[in-house]
Design a protein around this nucleic acid. Structure first.
Length: 238
DNA sequence: AACTTAATCAACCGCGCAGAA
DNA sequence: GTTCTGCGCGGTTGATTAAGT
């Protein structure tokens, strides 16, 4: 491979030694700033020779444009800037340098990175959120079903216990209850509140509570919250 | 506390364009 | 018209940090 070809492969400018790569040091930054102060922006291939940097022109320009320029605005993208980015991207697509011109102090690289990490993800997030909410609904239904079963069992057990207690005094009812186990409907005929054992239906208040709760976490290993609320729900019922 | 995963951002790379020789 | 050089742009990579398990 010739030196010319090699130089092309390595970036701009002729190669003197091997170009340095990777993160810039404070010393290199200082040299580059000094160079720009003296010679202005441009002629980046001269930087290595004139500033004593072992960086190619391309790398120097990038460092200056994206990091060292004094007019750069530091800090997070503001909501206003975010709106502009969204609008301009909708209009121009991935023309980051064009978008950057409308945002003083922001670089194309910065905007590009911001968009990729925020908006590109948000595009997918719509379907992801749908999947999440579906899964959440399913989990809630399953949980409520389980709750209903448990509570029904508890109610039935209470009923059985009270009936057994009653049976000592009112033997005929207990006998009839025993019949109910074999012949459903017998108790209902006696005006017994059978419907209560058909299952617990959560009140709208409970539903609100659960909605909030299920939005709070995604039911991922937060058993403490679940256990506490399970307890409070049970308390509400009794 | 250790490990894994996700998010962020600086820097690199390849390509293409414009102007000069 | 062709080649070379300087430069800018957009895509991608890799290191670091934060958050979660």
């Amino acid at each position: 491979m010739s030196w010319g070809v090699m130089a092309q492969n390595m970036g701009w400018g002729l190669i003197e030694e091997s170009w340095r790569k990777g993160p810039w040091t404070a010393e290199e930054d200082k040299l580059l700033i000094e160079y720009v102060k003296l010679h202005g922006e441009g002629r980046w291939n001269n930087v290595a020779r004139l500033a004593g940097l072992r960086r190619n022109g391309k790398s120097c320009r990038l460092r200056w444009v994206n990091y060292l320029r004094p007019d750069l605005k530091r800090g997070q993208i503001t909501p206003h800037e975010e709106t502009i980015i969204l609008e301009l991207h909708a209009r121009w697509g991935n023309r980051w340098s064009t978008i950057a011109r409308s945002l003083p102090g922001r670089t194309d690289n910065e905007i590009k990175n911001y968009w990729r990490t925020h908006f590109k993800k948000k595009g997918n997030a719509t379907s992801q959120n749908q999947e999440k909410s579906q899964a959440r609904l399913l989990r809630r239904q399953q949980f409520q079903q389980q709750q209903q079963q448990q509570q029904q069992q508890q109610i039935d057990m209470k009923m059985i216990m009270s009936l057994i207690e009653e049976s000592d005094k009112k033997l005929p009812i207990f006998t009839q209850f025993k019949q109910e186990i074999v012949y459903p409907g017998a108790l209902e005929e006696q005006g017994f509140p059978y419907s209560i054992s058909n299952g617990y239906e959560a009140s709208s208040e409970d539903m609100t509570l659960w909605d909030g709760l299920w939005d709070l976490d995604d039911f991922q290993g937060k058993s403490t919250t679940r256990a506490n609320n399970q307890h409070s729900l049970a308390s509400n019922f009794y």
